[in-house]
Amino acid sequence: MARKWLKQEKRTKEQLFDALVKNALGFVETSLDHVKERPKNSIVDLYTAIELFLKARLMAEHWTLMLSKPETAELQNLYVGDFLSVYLDDALKRINSILGEKIDLAASDNFKALGEHRNQIVHFAHSGHDDLAATQAGVIVEQWASWHYLYAMLTDTWKEVFEPYKIELQKLNHRMMRQRDFLSSRFTILKPKIEIELKRGKTIIACEHCELKSAVVNKVHPWGTDYSCLVCGVSDTAVVKADIKLPCPGCNEDVEFFDAKFTECPTCHFAFNTDALIDLCTAHIHEGDQWWEGGAEHIASCHECECPRPSVFYIDGLWSCVSCFDRGWQAVACERCGEFVTGDMERIKYFACHKCEDQVRQGIEAMVAAGAATEESQDAKEQP
């Protein structure tokens, strides 16, 4: 029998989940603390935090999912912390295949790249992190990009799971956003590269994340511009600004409300949250696009943020969500459930919308299982 060197206090699943998340938050904190003096440690700590948050998401679904071998799970071992948990790759696969939650490819690629750097630092001499000044600049860029994806997942995609830690996450986000000096230095270093891109005919715009004019335009759509930032490493879409104003309920002054940073009226300081924006648009926007028929539903449910209330209105020529401020998707009444939703039209037509996809998937699985059972029964009858 293997000897146990550490004696663990027995804890409930809820206490273990809380400890897991708080441990992850702590590693983000130390990652920020280490940037200036110990940048290599900063990468290791941030990667550890990412792994812990992914494990916490799996544990929130079912505790066995975060184990490296769920088939060997024993609840008593979990209570005392005696188990082996999954690594990054398996965690990403399980979130996608078992939970049915698709993590953005750019996010998963970023996490994996950070993991490779972490492994080089821990196990070998990382040749790219020898010069302290250069290392600091490089680490802050990696931190910025990784945190961009992670924070969006924790506060949007998995909002309900990590809601109790909202304040701690916001504090860490504010700390991350304060690291402007590093980004400015990085911008200065990369100016020659930006100039080369301009000479090649590329368009450079301001990145919506680091706010520096260092984003190379990849493709332009009616709803926005796809770009990749050379400074902070984030790839995103700069959504076309909505040219519309509506009267503030507090003072009746017109306000440019379609902005993720808009939280209050500049005149009377009336507070605007998602519900207030939905109420404002409901009172003033009563029509849809050219495919819309008078009297039909004109407020759609957003498949991107899945806001509990229908939050997508036809604003300045595009279906636009006042919860996540995404724009440009089509809106249609789902033929299966009747809900008016946004999303990929082919997926909605041939499979389901985000409102009914779980039900449709369960129905398909039940049909497949029933078919398999019938086939087995028929085979049994045919056997001599």
Rank of each mutant, 00 (worst) to 15 (best):
A113Q: 08
L114Y: 09
G115F: 05
E116S: 03
H117S: 10
H117V: 06
R118S: 03
R118K: 10
N119F: 03
Q120E: 14
V122N: 00
A125D: 15
D131Q: 08
L132F: 03
A134S: 08
A134R: 12
A134F: 06
T135C: 13
T135E: 07
Q136C: 02
I140V: 14
I140K: 06
V141E: 14
V141K: 15
E142V: 05
Q143W: 09
W144Q: 07
W144V: 04
A145G: 00
A145Y: 01
S146F: 07
H148K: 12
H148Q: 09
H148W: 09
Y149E: 11
L150V: 14
L150D: 10
Y151Q: 07
Y151I: 01
A152L: 06
A152N: 09
L154S: 11
T155H: 09
T157I: 04
T157N: 08
W158N: 05
K159W: 00
E160V: 00
E160H: 08
V161E: 12
F162G: 07
Y165V: 09
Y165M: 07
Y165Q: 07
I167T: 14
I167Q: 13
E168L: 06
E168P: 02
K171S: 14
L172T: 12
L172S: 11
N173R: 12
N173H: 14
H174Y: 01
H174K: 08
R178C: 04
R178D: 14
Q179G: 07
Q179C: 03
Q179I: 02
F182H: 15
L183R: 15
S184I: 13
S185M: 10
S185R: 15
F187M: 08
I189W: 04
L190I: 05
L190S: 04
L190R: 06
L190F: 04
K191A: 07
P192K: 05
K193P: 01
K193C: 03
I194E: 01
I194Q: 02
I194T: 11
E195Q: 15
E195S: 12
E195N: 13
E195F: 06
E197M: 14
L198T: 09
L198C: 04
K199H: 11
G201W: 03
G201P: 11
K202C: 11
T203H: 14
I205Y: 07
A206R: 15
C207H: 06
E208A: 14
H209I: 07
E211V: 05
E211F: 07
L212R: 15
L212P: 03
V216F: 02
V216I: 15
V217G: 08
N218M: 07
K219I: 01
